[in-house]
């Protein structure tokens, strides 16, 4: 199952981070390809996202259901394509790092290679290849959030897995996985930037 995890550190307290992340309106537009979203209730929402693959751009609708709110440190959710045979799940984690870290950096966690050795190697090669394609050969640079002295720091982690189903699912998953990586990094970077510089 294509899965990506990204961790970054922001110069803000956990309650500050939670206040920002709790309301999806704050960060929804940061999602790559975001078109619009609709909150049905606190737990359910509909998302419309536009993505590109091989020159083809497709707009797809997803239903997202939050399965757990654990203030101020954890949110989990599941997602389902409304028209597409795509399912997924994700998690947001916040961890208090204390105050005044000298080096608050943004770094991707190691990509899981949970599906076997050959697939893991293939995954890595595809990741590098697709990342170059997506970013036009320029490495994705995660922004280091500015950290002010004495400020509490919070580590935030995004974990997302998406799986295409149906007859085309196995090959689409080959393409989907590497595409998630820059998306997750970009989202994390933008959220970190916003939390660091509220208002």
């Amino acid at each position: 199952m294509p899965e990506v995890e990204h961790t970054t550190t922001v110069a803000a307290s956990m309650p500050q981070v939670w206040n920002f992340v709790e309301d999806m309106d704050n960060w929804a537009p940061f999602l790559t390809g975001y078109q619009r979203h609709e909150k049905i209730n606190r737990d359910e929402s509909i998302w419309v996202v536009k993505g590109e693959l091989g020159g083809l751009t497709r707009t797809a609708e997803f239903k997202v259901q939050v399965t757990e709110w654990q203030e101020p440190s954890r949110v989990t959710f599941v997602m389902q394509g409304v028209q597409e045979p795509v399912t997924g799940s994700g998690e947001f984690l916040a961890t208090d790092l204390g105050g005044g870290a000298d080096d608050a950096s943004s770094a991707p966690a190691a990509a899981p290679a949970s599906t076997g050795s050959w697939l893991g190697r293939l995954w890595d090669r595809l990741s590098r290849w697709l990342l170059r394609r997506v970013t036009n050969s320029v490495d994705v640079q995660a922004v280091k959030p500015a950290v002010s002295g004495g400020q509490r720091n919070t580590q935030i982690t995004f974990r997302l897995n998406v799986q295409a189903g149906g007859a085309t699912g196995p090959v689409l998953n080959l393409l989907l996985g590497p595409m998630l990586k820059p998306v997750a990094e970009d989202l994390a970077m933008k959220i970190a930037r916003s939390v660091d510089s509220p208002g």
Binding site: L53, G55, L122, R125, L126
Partner: peptide, 26 residues
């Protein structure tokens, strides 16, 4: 969007086989 050729049809290649397509992508 996938690396396939019209010869795959004549060859009976399963163009949705992730091993075949993954190797070609890599």
């Amino acid at each position: 969007p996938l690396p396939v050729a019209m010869t795959d049809i004549d060859d009976g290649t399963n163009m949705l086989d992730p091993v075949v397509i993954g190797d070609r992508l890599a």
